[in-house]
Amino acid sequence: MSAFTIEKVKKTFSNGEIEEEILKGVNLSLKEGEITALIGPSGSGKSTILTIAAGLQRASCGEILFEGSDMTKMSQEEVRHVRATDFGFVFQSSHLVPFLTVEEQLQLMLDVAETKTSKKEQAKAIDEMLKLVEMQHRKDAYPSSLSGGERQRVAIARALIHHPKILFADEPTASLDTKRSKGVMELLRELTRTLHLTTLMVTHDEEMLSYVDRVITMRDGYIVE
């Protein structure tokens, strides 16, 4: 059964009088426990469909069905609530909050998700998650003192600490070398399986495709494979 479905989604950007259609009717279904990779040349619309699916921008038309509800018909506040509680997002350049320590990044996410557990339980969950991404030894470090790979690990931990149902990752290995990229992909694959996640990621690195369950190719705003 599909955990997440995108139907006939289009996205048009207007630049003055010129309108450019980036997505020309995309259909896509994601399955629980699977990593789906979106690949394609630059400008094919893969990052656009990912950010629309994650509720970071609106589609021009079409439907995005999550747990039976069409997200395109939700209010801004409803979409925010879904993002805070059910989605996790890993950005290309980690985008950690620069003035929070590793531990505080995760605590912030728990606060944002309005997790109903006690502070003690939250501290335990943070410890466990940091252990899972092998970052417990850097829990008091600020992002500026972390390497690129460490930052991405923390970003993954932040995206998962509140137990989301769907994880979106936009080129999570783009700023990393091959060794670190493989480490991040192994981590994503393991977490997707152990936490029963549904993961949608964008990548242009074909070496990373061996870690995913399904590959979807996009070109000129369409899914071609």
């Binding site: 970071l56 925010r80 609530h81 993002r83 805070a84 509680t85 989605f87 997002f89 950005f91 985008h95 909050v97 620069p98 912030l108 996410m109 944002v112 998700a113 932040r158």
Partner: peptide
């Protein structure tokens, strides 16, 4: 940009 990240992870506008 920072507010964008906080919005992206779902922080309330009032916060």
């Amino acid at each position: 940009g920072l507010y964008g990240i906080l919005k992206a992870i779902g922080m309330r506008t009032i916060s």
